[in-house]
């Protein structure tokens, strides 16, 4: 690589060399990000870090209180409950959603005239996002006389108070998340499309069956995309807020009081911006560690074309 560049450099002027230099090109292409980061991101991030050591409440002057927010958090039972609830939610919803999304994306690779239609059918739920109408529908589905309870009644299981029983209150929220699996599915579908057909043809000639080619070709080729979906869904699951905010408001008895929801309430309802900032920095550390672990582990299971050197 280096050699090629230096022989190039002799031929063209130094300005051109500068422009075509890999470092220059790298920074030029990254320029939008750098501008955005320095201009609009770094200051808010640093100020939220600063606020986490103050008693800042909206509209009032912030005064330095050292580690007090962090110390108070350690003794806040509602905080620990929200950590517990959030972990439970992340650990169930993310794998379910990803498996489901991959499963559907695979099914949709079957070549029929209706595939496009089917894909739309499964994607529609994700398109309506977190609108009020949807949350209302969801509430209605799981209400005491809702469809789910009617079906359970017919199956002889009996009604469940979905929003009144602490043990099951998380389930409707998890199902709502899984139901809106569309963006992961689309990304999987695009990833599947990228896999060269020749790989499968070669495998077929070698006598590999469907299952074998799934594990030997599809999964490895898809692994960068799986990594991506895993990281993104984990991050966004930790930050889940809307579902609980509009459907359960964290109840009953804080059983669905997600971390992000409790943080939001501290920031905007109780107006304890400093306290909420401390919460968000604890969250940042948590997610960073988890993301890092996922990245570290990816060396063992992600097959990366561009890392072959």
């Amino acid at each position: 690589m280096k050699k090629v560049k230096s022989t190039d450099g002799k031929r063209i002027s130094s300005i051109k060399a500068l422009i075509y230099n890999e470092t220059t090109a790298g920074y030029l292409f990254a320029l939008p990000f750098i501008i955005g980061f320095l201009g609009f991101t770094i200051v808010p991030i640093l100020s939220s870090f600063y606020y986490s050591f103050t008693d800042y409440s909206l509209g009032n002057k912030a005064s330095w209180i050292g580690l007090n927010n962090y110390i108070t958090l350690m003794g806040d039972k509602r905080f620990w409950n929200s950590v517990y609830v959030t972990f439970k939610y992340v650990l169930t919803s993310v794998p379910l959603k990803l498996i489901f999304a991959l499963f559907i994306a695979m099914i949709m690779t079957r070549k029929t005239r209706l595939t496009g239609f089917y894909r739309s059918l499964y994607y529609v739920p994700s398109l309506i996002g977190g609108s009020i109408a949807v949350t209302l529908v969801w509430k209605e589905l799981f209400s005491r006389r809702g469809l789910i309870n009617q079906l359970l009644g017919m199956a002889g299981i009996g009604r469940v108070s979905w929003f009144g029983n602490q043990k099951v209150a998380l389930i409707p929220l998890i199902l709502l998340t899984v139901w809106q699996f569309g963006s992961s599915m689309i990304i999987f579908a695009a990833g599947l499309k990228q896999i060269p057909t020749t790989y499968y043809e070669a495998a077929k000639i070698d006598g590999a069956n469907r299952r074998k080619s799934f594990f030997k070709i599809t999964l490895p080729c898809l692994s960068p995309v799986i990594l991506y979906n895993l990281v993104m869904q984990t991050i966004s699951a930790f930050m889940t807020f809307t579902q609980a905010f509009v459907i359960t408001s964290g109840g009953p008895n804080d059983a669905t009081n997600f971390y992000a929801l409790y943080m939001y309430n501290n920031a905007f309802t109780y107006r304890k911006m400093g306290y909420a900032s401390a919460m968000s920095w604890i969250m940042l550390v948590f997610i960073s560690i988890i993301t890092l672990l996922i990245f570290k582990s990816s060396k063992y299971w992600v097959f990366n074309e561009s890392d072959k050197e």
Partner: peptide
């Protein structure tokens, strides 16, 4: 990192 901080505090 910019993805790890919740939008609400920013």
């Amino acid at each position: 990192m910019t993805m790890l901080l919740p939008g609400q505090v920013l």
